[in-house]
């Protein structure tokens, strides 16, 4: 009797583990199937075609792909130094008594739903951007900055975790040799935690590129490759959020799935790089 239950439990557990695999495979398969008409019609030209004119049944993904990549890239440029700064502050500079509360606060901020960042961006930040940079306040740069603020806590928290893996003894001995804090950071902490830090940053990138709600409020929603940073743009998630429920022709619907497939593949690759190349060490360490 026990044996049957034992086997049953194992089978159930294994099936649940399998489920994750099945879902991932199903997502790929469904995205591909739904995207197939658009792939057959446009082929790889879809990636470079800049015209998105649903009334003419012309669909080019270039503006959305461009917007996704550039807004994420800009957000990374803004967020990375600040996140590393926060992480250094939290590991090496802050008083012991401050480390935990500030660290916890940042972790909590990472949990705030992204749509709240988007609402704040629309009502409070976009008008400021309009004052500072001209234009209409909504556009690529605004989206990138809101995005960078949104990923900042997540990035700072995991970067700090990576830095914290540096053994105390290494740091202590360096200080004993007369090293300054910067020496320790530069010569001990960063070399030791380098892979983890890079991995964390790429992981944050993976989250940024798939983000919908923080940017859809402030990006401007147009299928054009912007000429200036303050120009409005679009990204793949923004396009899906705006147009998915109303794509009334088959090709339109399929083109949106083509975009979804591209986004999924990009984020798949990004995360795979972060996980398997840079974060291997931290995993085997567990």
């Amino acid at each position: 009797m026990h044996k049957v239950v034992d086997k049953g439990f194992e089978a159930l557990a294994k099936l649940s583990a399998f489920f994750v695999l099945i879902v991932l495979a199903a997502i790929f398969w469904v995205l591909f199937k739904e995207a197939e008409p658009a792939i057959e019609t446009f082929g790889l030209e879809f990636l470079t075609n800049q015209k998105w004119a649903p009334n003419l049944e012309i669909f080019g993904g270039a503006p959305a792909i461009f917007g996704s990549i550039v807004s994420t890239f800009l957000a990374m440029i803004i967020a990375t130094p600040i996140a590393i700064g926060i992480a250094i502050f939290l590991t090496e500079i802050a008083f012991e008594k401050l480390k935990t509360p500030i660290g916890t606060a940042i972790e909590m901020l990472a949990a705030i739903p992204s749509i709240i960042y988007g609402m704040w961006g629309l009502f409070y930040f976009a008008p400021l951007m309009r004052e500072w940079f001209g234009g209409n306040g909504l556009g690529l740069l605004t989206a990138a900055i809101v995005l960078s603020i949104m990923i900042l806590p997540f990035m700072a928290a995991i970067t700090r975790d990576s830095m914290n893996t540096t053994p105390h003894i290494l740091k202590e001995s360096a200080y004993a040799l007369g090293a300054t804090k910067w020496d320790v950071i530069k010569d001990v902490v960063i070399p030791y935690a380098k892979a983890g830090i890079i991995g964390s940053i790429i992981l944050a990138l993976g989250r940024a590129i798939g983000e919908t709600m923080a940017v859809t409020f402030v990006m401007g929603n147009v299928h054009r490759i912007p000429k200036e940073l303050t120009d409005p743009a679009t990204s793949i998630p923004v396009t899906l959020a705006n147009e998915f429920t109303e794509a009334d022709s088959d090709l339109y619907y399929s083109s949106l799935f083509y975009l979804a497939l591209i986004l999924f593949v990009i984020s798949f690759i990004v995360i795979a790089i972060a996980k398997f190349y840079f974060l291997k060490k931290s995993r085997s360490a567990k």
Binding site: N55, L56, L138, G139, V222, H223, R224, P232
Partner: peptide, 10 residues
């Protein structure tokens, strides 16, 4: 219903 707009924000 949906056009390729040459200018503006959406």
């Amino acid at each position: 219903k949906a056009l390729s707009w040459p200018t503006g924000i959406g």
